[in-house]
Amino acid sequence: MNSNRLLFILILLCCINLYGSDRTLYVDNFSNILGNPGKEDKLLLFAKRNNFKTLILYQLNKVDKRWSLTDASKNGILAEFISKAKTKYSVQNIGASGESATFFTNRIDPYNNTRTKSSEKFDIYNLEFEYWSKNASGDDGYYCENYLRDNNLACTRTGSFQYFVNNLKELNSLSSKNKHNIKVEAYLAYFSKEEMKVINELCDRVIIHGFGKNPKTAMNSATKSLKLIMNLNSSIKTSILLSTRMNHMGYWFKHNSLGKSESLLFKEMNGKSLELRKQLNLDGFSYQTYSYLEKAISYYSYSQN
């Protein structure tokens, strides 16, 4: 084996290890997982085997309806799950996802304050409010009806972005007042340079969507957003989000491992611009969501055996 080929393999292995250690998994259908030991352990074993260090939980509003998150006598079931993930399954961070800071103020932050052990607390407040959506923010849209008008904001992208920013500021306020170290992050798909300048000051991490059915198309989709961040000379942590639905990258993952996929994404990134890799504070890859990815990887594992 010649020296150049050996060097390439060593670099590739380092890249796989780098990204593999920073995987984030969005967990859907969580209200039907919590409280079922078999489903909980299946999720956490999947996370451990595939080196997911961060879990972002959806459906916490439904969890709250079953086990009040603000009542220490009832929210122990969630605390036990979070503790088990951190202490037994090598998960380092648990995040709560919501579309409004009000939910964090009224439910998630009070939950954290009822727990005395850091191993039982949320570490990330993840805002998922798609302010760029014309349908959601326009007249009669979901955001317009439920958030913008009630806050005297215009049902436009400008009004929706202002609501998004106001929510990030509120999450930062919650984080600063909490003794537990809480990071604030946001999901982003489409944004302008001016919008990113504002977001950059309010988030510890942004999760940038790469739309596509394979590493090449996913990275093509994410490149514009990544370059906007790079051109700000920002040190903000940046994770690249991959959808694992069958009409996105789900079919790809039925036939390719996470390690191979991430190495190809890294190769595509270098192909776009080596400076892109050097100047971004990349925080690995995020996968949305658990139920789709678990099925795809199970198929892949079965096919390999």
Rank of each mutant, 00 (worst) to 15 (best):
L171E: 03
N51F: 10
G271D: 07
N36F: 11
I82S: 11
K227D: 02
I9T: 12
S97N: 01
L153I: 03
S192L: 12
V27A: 04
L226T: 03
K53M: 07
N270K: 12
K213S: 14
N233K: 15
L153S: 04
Y292C: 07
N32R: 08
F285N: 00
S225H: 05
S303H: 13
S303T: 14
L78I: 05
N4E: 14
Q59R: 00
W67L: 01
R107Q: 05
L241P: 09
H209Q: 02
V198I: 07
D71L: 06
D123R: 13
A136M: 11
G141P: 14
G98Q: 09
Y190K: 04
K193M: 13
Y290G: 04
Y26A: 08
D204S: 07
L232Q: 15
G141M: 11
E185W: 08
E80M: 13
G210T: 02
Q288S: 00
D204W: 01
I207F: 10
S301R: 08
N200K: 09
L280W: 04
K53D: 13
T87V: 09
D64S: 03
L69E: 07
D41R: 02
T217F: 08
S239Y: 08
I208L: 13
N112D: 06
L25P: 01
F129Q: 03
S73A: 03
N75K: 04
E195W: 09
G20M: 04
G210S: 06
Y147C: 03
Y290L: 09
L265W: 12
S68H: 07
G138E: 11
N106Y: 09
L228M: 10
Q279F: 12
L232V: 14
K53A: 15
K134G: 11
G98E: 10
Y302Q: 14
L293C: 01
M269N: 09
K224I: 15
K260F: 13
T54N: 11
S263G: 12
K224Y: 15
N93I: 05
T102G: 09
P37G: 02
R66L: 08
W252N: 00
S263W: 13
K39L: 05
L242R: 03
N112L: 14
E120N: 11
T116Q: 08
Y19D: 15
R115Q: 05
F285A: 06
L232H: 11
A218H: 05
K88T: 11
T223L: 02
R245Q: 13
E201R: 15
D71G: 03
L168N: 01
K295M: 04
R49C: 10
I56Q: 01
S73L: 10
I94C: 00
N220Y: 03
H209S: 12
Y287W: 11
K179M: 13
T289D: 12
Y299R: 06
N178G: 12
K74V: 06
S291Y: 12
I124F: 02
N214E: 08
M196G: 05
N200T: 14
D123K: 14
D139Q: 15
Y89R: 00
L264I: 13
Y300I: 07
T289F: 10
N75T: 04
G212D: 02
D283I: 01
E294R: 05
A96C: 14
E170I: 05
A96L: 06
F253R: 06
L276C: 04
L226A: 00
I94V: 08
E40F: 01
L60E: 06
S235Q: 15
V27I: 06
G259D: 11
